[in-house]
């Protein structure tokens, strides 16, 4: 039995036994190489799940839908390691309870799909894998190229990209870490971030989001894929993540008991920036 069939029947079993109220997975998409989220509430619906190398989205973002988990019932979800990493972060930020999430884990290597062992978040120890995880070579190359620029060139690079932003907030909607009930950009008393999409306002928005994700990004690349104008958002988050590792030896999502890095203090934190 292939992994797709295995997970279809497992999902069906979870639903028919009543262990979970919902399974979040993938279904057919608009084209042959696209997959769309599928929400199964009955064993029959579970038969429509698809699992193949095109299932790259990070479905953990649906777990933080307002009210979804407030009844205390469980939800199962198809997750790749980066999705599991986001679940760790969400648990450490009190957005999920570990026991409410059943993980149907899988990994994609080239076109090969393998099932991951374990169903509860505590079964996965991702620590080392996450630390050694590097973005795909083309991203790394691009990151290094930007690193080598002088500040003026770098500013021009980002200005060119950010000026394209249409403030659709797709990056925010798709991001599991953007679970705020009300985003800072929606605050209009006072209006910290201007809403129109001119370069200044776009800078404000994209930089605020970069700061908000520092030490929290799971590197799933969802924002990058969602952006309709192809702003390489993951480069920003990659750089911030590196900064946090260097300064605090902290890698987001290694486990679910981490304390938020920018909110917590340790007695031996470096204080080089305090005069």
């Amino acid at each position: 039995m292939g992994i797709q069939e295995q997970y279809r029947s497992e999902a069906a079993a979870l639903l028919s036994s009543g262990e979970v109220k919902l399974v979040i997975g993938f279904g057919e998409g608009s084209t042959a190489d696209r997959r769309r989220p599928l929400f199964a509430r009955t064993p029959e619906e579970a038969q429509k799940f698809v699992l193949d190398a095109a299932c790259i989205a990070n479905l953990s973002t649906y777990l933080v839908t307002e009210g979804l988990l407030s009844d205390g019932k469980k939800v199962a979800v198809f997750l790749k390691p980066d999705g599991i990493r986001s679940v760790n972060i969400l648990i450490s930020e009190a957005q999920l309870k570990p026991d409410q999430v059943v993980i149907l884990g899988y990994a994609i290597d080239k076109a090969e799909i393998t099932a991951l062992e374990g169903r509860n978040i505590s079964d996965f120890s991702l620590g080392e894998e996450i630390r050694s995880h590097t973005p795909p070579p083309h991203i790394l190359q691009e990151a290094e190229r930007i690193e080598e620029m002088n500040p003026a060139e770098r500013f021009e690079f980002w200005k060119a990209h950010f000026s394209k932003c249409i403030k659709c907030y797709a990056c925010r909607q798709v991001c599991p870490m953007c679970y705020c009930r009300r985003c800072i950009v929606d605050v209009n008393q006072p209006q910290w971030v201007s809403t129109s999409s001119h370069t200044l306002g776009n800078f404000e928005w994209n930089i605020v989001r970069a700061f908000h994700l520092a030490g929290r990004c799971a590197a799933c690349g969802a924002c990058d894929r969602a952006c309709p104008v192809n702003i390489p958002l993951r480069l920003v988050n990659y750089r911030m993540g590196k900064e946090v590792i260097d300064a605090f030896d902290y890698c987001a999502g290694e486990n679910s008991s981490q304390k938020p890095v920018l909110a917590s203090f340790k007695q031996d934190d470096p204080e080089t920036f305090i005069l």
Partner: peptide, 15 residues
């Protein structure tokens, strides 16, 4: 209270 997401960041951060 309407907009607080209950992330407890402030709880840790408060010195």
């Amino acid at each position: 209270e309407t907009t607080c997401a209950g992330c407890w960041g402030c709880v840790y951060a408060c010195p």
